[in-house]
């Protein structure tokens, strides 16, 4: 099953502690997963264990993107499952360090 990813929308993993917020996403529906399981609404209750093929820590404060960076998620809570679109893993976006302005 797939979900529309609106900027600002939040999801949590069904199988670990991970939570994300959508920074940007292409229109249409996407199969967003964490730990190999479809991500769920922040208030929903999950169950089960991460798929061992999709274990690898997702880190708080890191941004995760697809290959062309049209999709970008911010991890707002870390967990042991890894993020993927379908079975394609998302990658950590390299930080562009701006000088602190405030």
């Amino acid at each position: 099953m797939a979900t529309a990813l609106k900027p600002g929308a939040r999801f949590k993993s069904a199988v670990c502690e991970t939570q994300v917020m959508v920074v940007k996403a292409p229109a249409g529906e996407h199969d967003l997963r964490c730990g190999g399981a479809e991500m769920i609404a922040p208030t929903a209750t999950g169950a089960g264990e991460p798929d061992p093929a999709f274990v690898g820590e997702t880190l708080i404060g890191k941004r995760y993107v697809n290959a062309d960076e049209s999709l970008e998620l911010l991890c707002t809570k870390g967990g042991k499952g890894s993020l993927s679109l379908g079975s394609t893993p998302l990658e950590v976006k390299q930080a562009k360090q701006l000088p602190s302005s405030d």
């Binding site: 920074v23 708080i60 404060g61 890191k62 360090q97 701006l98 602190s100 302005s101």
Partner: peptide, 9 residues
């Protein structure tokens, strides 16, 4: 904030 600050920097 997300565009100009790195979390936990």
């Amino acid at each position: 904030i997300v565009g100009t600050v790195e979390f936990g920097a």
